[in-house]
Design a protein around this nucleic acid. Structure first.
Lengths: 222, 222
DNA sequence: AGGGTAAGATTGGGATACCAAAATGGCATG
DNA sequence: CATGCCATTTTGGTATCCCAATCTTACCCT
């Protein structure tokens, strides 16, 4: 694989895992030494990441995109029509094997699993469901939305019951798709997105002090 | 403005206006002489355009993204939930001035206007309506979808009645938003998207010979 | 004449050189 | 001690340079 793609993937991972703090300045020269490559592939990776809005310009500087908690509500508003459409289409188009695959994914995440695992599967579930719609535009839009949500979800203080609640909702959505009940699946998906938004906002509001202490550029929480 | 952005914008325009044919090969060296700049900003512009899916890799070569007419149906399927949501939100959130602005836009396009004008406004209408939703994710998604549609719309053979039909539908959508009738607006928007898809597919099917004659890489029409 | 092939040209990937603008830091001045 | 200003450094933007891979092409052997 080209060096540029390696750098892109690594940098992306560092950003999404909060290894690089939101708002943090990135100088091309630092990245140069960090990845032991020249500025050419690094620049290409940065331009690419800018397209994914994981990196931004600040004047002529590069910064890790800040987390804008103000967009959480707009994001939910966007996801509801998208994902309700996705599950409706999934009912019509998904094969049993497709569904079994996602069930397996959920099963694989036992209660003792590490935090990263829960986080990743919680994201992938939505993308995989979208994939069942057979509509690549929906898949890309859902994947983009989940990426945007991803870092905020790390900041959430996950309690055992809230995590269990989310998992029950995932199972219910999948169950309705399996039973080919599109309207129930859509209703469940919409509720799940709203619930998740509420849990997230509540948690972040309760933990504002903690967020600031960690020094990330986190903006927009009213 | 940086040279890279200039090159990006010009190249983007050349692609969207079919000045550069879909599927056409782009060598960095040709672009270098065409834009009288070095490869560095050109490569940045290409990476950027790749993110917008207006340019692709073909092996290690760059090509103008082919037009995939097979995605027209998926695109409509994607737009319906998006844009019905947009008009519903617009009813709740748009000011009279916002609406008047879009009315003015439609008025400005008289029947004698050049083809480019009809094309541009036909795209902008949808983006501006989306903007009334106040949801930036919806705006970006609609803008992206209209960009993807843009080149196929140039290939369409516009008859006077079909153009008039589209315009009437635009006016009706806007009218329902003005009268604050979200459900009627949503129904109208969904119908408009379906109608447009049908008109486009019918026109392209009737003109397949013409398309091939022009030698563009146009794929996927069943 | 046909087909394989090797020399040459061309290409994109990456590294480096150079520059102007911007940030930094330290010194002089009030 | 605060403040303004200039020298220096650092930065990103651009232009080149080099290389390995790939594509052409023209030739030679059959």
């Amino acid at each position: 694989m080209s060096q540029m793609l390696q750098i892109h993937d690594q940098l992306r991972e560092m950003i999404l895992s909060l290894d690089l703090g939101p708002g943090e300045r990135l100088t091309e020269r630092w990245l140069e030494s960090r990845f032991e490559g020249s500025r050419t592939p690094i620049r290409a990776a940065l331009v690419r990441l800018e397209g994914e809005e994981l990196v931004q310009r600040d004047g002529r500087n590069w910064i890790v995109a800040p987390i804008d908690l103000g967009e959480l509500e707009a994001l939910a508003e966007f996801r509801v029509p998208l994902e309700t459409t996705a599950v409706r289409l999934a009912c019509a188009r998904a094969s049993e094997a497709d569904i079994a695959g996602i069930e397996g994914m959920l099963d694989a995440c036992q209660s003792g699993a590490p935090r990263e695992e829960w986080h990743r599967i919680g994201t992938d579930f939505h993308v995989e469901i979208a994939r069942l719609s057979g509509n690549s535009f929906i898949v890309k839009a859902v994947a983009g939305a989940m990426t945007r949500l991803s870092r905020a979800r790390w900041l959430e203080v996950w309690t055992e019951p809230s995590r269990e609640q989310a998992w029950r909702e995932h199972r219910r959505i999948l169950g309705f798709i399996k039973n080919n009940d599109p309207e129930a699946a859509a209703r469940e998906a919409a509720d799940h997105i709203s619930d998740t938004r509420d849990r997230l906002l509540r948690s972040l509001n309760e933990d504002r002090r903690g967020l600031k202490a960690r020094g990330f550029a986190v903006i927009g929480l009213r």
